[in-house]
């Protein structure tokens, strides 16, 4: 069967910690799939299981019909990964790093050199390719690692937090590269930057405490929240109109009203009439994430919230 399918995957570490609780998931194996969730939610655990580095305690999964438990050898022909905590080996140059990785994938030496050089150019590390990794900045080292999988032929690519530590411009450069790459490959990425997931991913899954909270396209996720629209009042002193929805006070003094489509329409008409400045839009992934994952927002430092019937 095509696609990535997880069936009741559970993982209990030897310490007794249960990191995944009967996780089931089914996504198309093309484009970009983003897995999001808080620290310790179980993202890396799932990635390591799917990339055949670790056995699940129970359950199974397959990618394009290749079973991760019974056919790891076959799957390993197709996958490549940059682990979350991978480091560029300090005594290698970027060129040597990518080149040797391609040799491990079985490339002939000349072909490996060509591909390595090109991938390093693509990530903007062309002119640093022959300096030792230890003299590069943190973000540059990260790019070297991303270059290894970009240079590879793997059809399925796992990137566990690839953009952590990248500056905004490098990050958007990497986005462009991933957007190009996804035309031929399936990219499974985890990230804490929700705007990144929203911009890049064709489908998204949210995990919390080892369980799947929701998955689907951003539209589908939006359909799962109670109030899919957001109205933002920049002036915190504005009198909040009475409406069915949620009111959140931001740290910057702004007020955000989460509400349904019809209500959003009528409230905005009312606000226009009064001449109040506001921004209206569908919920961003940030808002969706908050409302799906955070059950108790009240009293939290990100803003006060009250139901506003």
């Amino acid at each position: 069967m095509k696609g990535l399918v997880c069936r009741n995957i559970s993982k209990r570490y030897p310490t007794g910690k249960v990191a995944l609780k009967s996780m089931s998931l089914s996504v198309e194996s093309k484009g970009i799939f983003a897995l999001i969730g808080r620290n310790g939610a179980g993202k890396t655990t799932l990635v390591r299981i799917l990339a055949t580095q670790m056995m699940p305690t129970s359950g199974t999964a397959s990618i394009d019909g290749i079973d991760i438990i019974r056919e790891p050898g076959r799957l390993r022909q197709e996958i490549a990964i940059v682990p979350q905590e991978a480091r560029a080996i300090p005594w290698l140059t970027p060129m040597e790093t990518v080149y040797s990785y391609l040799l491990w994938r079985g490339f002939e030496s000349g072909e490996a050199k060509k591909r390595a050089r090109k991938a390093l150019n693509d990530v903007g590390m062309g002119d640093q390719a022959d300096k030792m990794n230890q003299y590069l900045s943190g973000g540059m080292k990260r790019k070297v690692l991303v270059a290894t999988v970009i240079a590879s032929e793997a059809r399925i690519i796992f990137l566990d937090e690839p953009t952590t530590g990248l500056d905004p411009i490098s990050r958007s450069d990497l986005w462009k590269m991933l957007a190009k790459l996804k035309k031929e490959r399936f990219i499974f990425l985890t990230t804490h930057y929700l705007d990144e997931a929203e911009k890049l991913a064709d489908s998204i899954a949210i995990v919390e405490e080892g369980k799947l909270v929701a998955s689907g396209t951003i539209e589908e996720l939006r359909g799962k929240v109670k109030y899919p629209y957001s109205i933002k009042l920049l002036d915190g002193n504005t009198k909040v109109p009475k409406v069915r929805g949620k009111v959140i006070k931001g740290l910057d003094g702004s007020i955000q009203i989460l509400t349904g489509e019809d209500e959003a329409y009528s409230v905005s008409k009312e606000l226009i009439k009064k001449g109040t400045k506001f921004a209206l839009g569908p919920l961003t992934l940030d808002d969706i994430f908050y409302s799906l994952v955070r059950k108790k927002i009240e009293g939290d430092d990100d803003g006060d919230e009250e139901e506003n019937w």
Binding site: A51, Q53, R76, P83, E85, A86, R87, W104, R105
Partner: peptide, 17 residues
């Protein structure tokens, strides 16, 4: 290489046995 670089994880998830 395995614990500090996570290199072995990259190799496990590759065609090298």
């Amino acid at each position: 290489l395995r614990n500090d670089m996570k290199l072995q994880d990259m190799v496990v998830s590759s065609p090298t046995s």
